[in-house]
């Protein structure tokens, strides 16, 4: 039998079924050139493995490991996965997965720092939903009247499809939340800004970043004070 280069490679790489394998082995017994070729292929594989083995044994940068552990250590992401597995749901849109990770980092800090306080974000069916203080602020606080509130409303707008969305900035998280059936769903989540000298920072670069994201999402102008008040009275619908 004539043994092709494909068959030699597949023989050496253990990709042949037992019948084909036996045929190649038998041919190699009768053909010294073929036997030498197989031996050379095997030797090449060993040479390559030996050459590249030390690279896979070298220590990796510690900060890579730290980043992975910090990002995945979150109970929120874990509970999202568990909840989904329990319901047998497909993973939902990629859109908020990044936000979920960002939020989990935020929450990880928050949980570590203030175990006694209820979370401001919880895992919902399709993403992260505002809870506790944040849900209250989104429901009740008007951008036009919020003197010393810990969570500030930066603006309210309508997005494509008509949902009302609000941009907020707080000590634990900042972001954009849109009102839907399940409550205030996070569209964007960023780390919050910490108070300086007892007062929250004025709009910083993170806020500017959020406002830019809001402008990209918004249809028409943001709501003015009267429109915002009216929207609140209608349950943000």
């Amino acid at each position: 039998m004539t043994v092709t280069a494909e068959q030699i490679a597949a023989f050496v790489d253990d990709e042949l079924d037992s019948a084909a394998r036996a045929q190649v082995a038998e041919a190699a017994l009768r053909d010294p050139d073929l036997a030498a070729r197989i031996a050379a292929e095997r030797a090449l594989r060993e040479t390559l493995r030996a050459h590249f083995a030390p690279l896979a044994a070298a220590p990796v940068p510690q900060d890579w490991i730290a980043t992975i552990r910090a990002t995945t250590a979150s109970p929120v992401v874990a509970s999202l996965a568990d909840a989904r597995a329990a319901r047998g749901r497909k993973p939902s849109a990629r859109r908020w997965v990044g936000a979920a990770i960002a939020a989990s980092l935020v929450l990880g800090v928050a949980i570590g720092a203030q175990l006694h306080r209820p979370a401001v974000l919880v895992a919902g069916g399709d993403g992260l939903i505002a809870s506790g203080d944040l849900a209250r602020a989104l429901d009740t606080q008007l951008a036009s009247a919020q003197a010393d509130a810990p969570i500030r409303m930066l603006g309210t707008f309508r997005r494509q499809g008509g949902d009302l969305c609000r941009v907020f900035a707080g000590p634990v998280a900042s972001g954009i939340a849109c009102h839907g059936g399940a409550g205030w769903q996070m569209e964007q989540v960023r780390p919050g800004s910490r108070p300086e000298n007892g007062a929250y920072r004025q709009a910083g670069s993170a806020d500017g970043d959020l406002m830019a994201a809001a402008q990209a999402m918004a249809v028409g102008d943001p709501l003015n004070a009267d429109q915002e008040r009216a929207a609140q009275q209608h349950g943000w619908r």
């Binding site: 995945t72 250590a73 874990a78």
Partner: peptide, 23 residues
């Protein structure tokens, strides 16, 4: 699988990832 378990598997994989990236 939790995110933490995923993270550990990824950490275990890092040396080989690095080798493949270099290749």
């Amino acid at each position: 699988m939790t995110s933490a378990e995923f993270g550990e598997e990824l950490v275990q994989l890092l040396p080989r990832m690095r080798r493949f990236a270099r290749s």
